[in-house]
Computed example of a mutant assay.
Amino acid sequence: MFAIMGATGQTGGMALAAILEAGRQARAIVRDPERARSVVGEGATLAKADLDDIDALTAALTGVEAAYVLNPVSVVADDVFAAAARTGAAIAEAIRRAGVPHVVALSSSGAHHAEGTGIVRSLHRFEAVLRGAAPSLTFIRATEFMENWGGMLGVAAEHGVLPSMRQPLDRREETVSARDVGRQVAQELLRPHAGERIVNLKGPAEYAPEDAARALSELLGKPVTAVATPRAEWEDGLIAAGLGASYARELAALYDAMNAGRAAFEPVGETRRGSVTLKEALAGLLAGSPG
Rank of each mutant, 00 (worst) to 15 (best):
R171H: 13
E147Y: 06
N71I: 00
A212C: 13
Q187L: 14
I198W: 12
E218H: 14
I19N: 04
A215W: 05
R97M: 02
H113I: 00
S289A: 15
E34H: 14
A186G: 10
N148T: 07
L201H: 06
G13H: 07
V30T: 07
A252R: 11
A245S: 14
G154P: 08
K279E: 15
A232Y: 00
P168G: 08
A215G: 13
Y255P: 01
V76M: 07
H193D: 00
A82K: 09
L20C: 10
G6R: 05
A232E: 13
A142S: 13
Q25A: 12
F139I: 14
R96M: 07
V104M: 11
A142R: 05
G154T: 05
L254Q: 05
S289G: 11
E280T: 06
G151D: 01
I54V: 15
E34M: 08
G288V: 15
D256M: 10
P168I: 11
V181N: 02
I29M: 04
R183E: 13
A208L: 11
E218I: 02
V39R: 10
A28V: 03
A241F: 05
P168H: 11
V181P: 08
M14F: 10
V75C: 00
S246A: 14
L278R: 12
N259E: 01
A47P: 03
P267Q: 08
P267E: 06
V129P: 08
V268E: 15
G242L: 06
V129C: 12
G237M: 06
T225W: 00
F81G: 00
H193E: 00
F265T: 05
R179T: 10
P33G: 03
F139P: 08
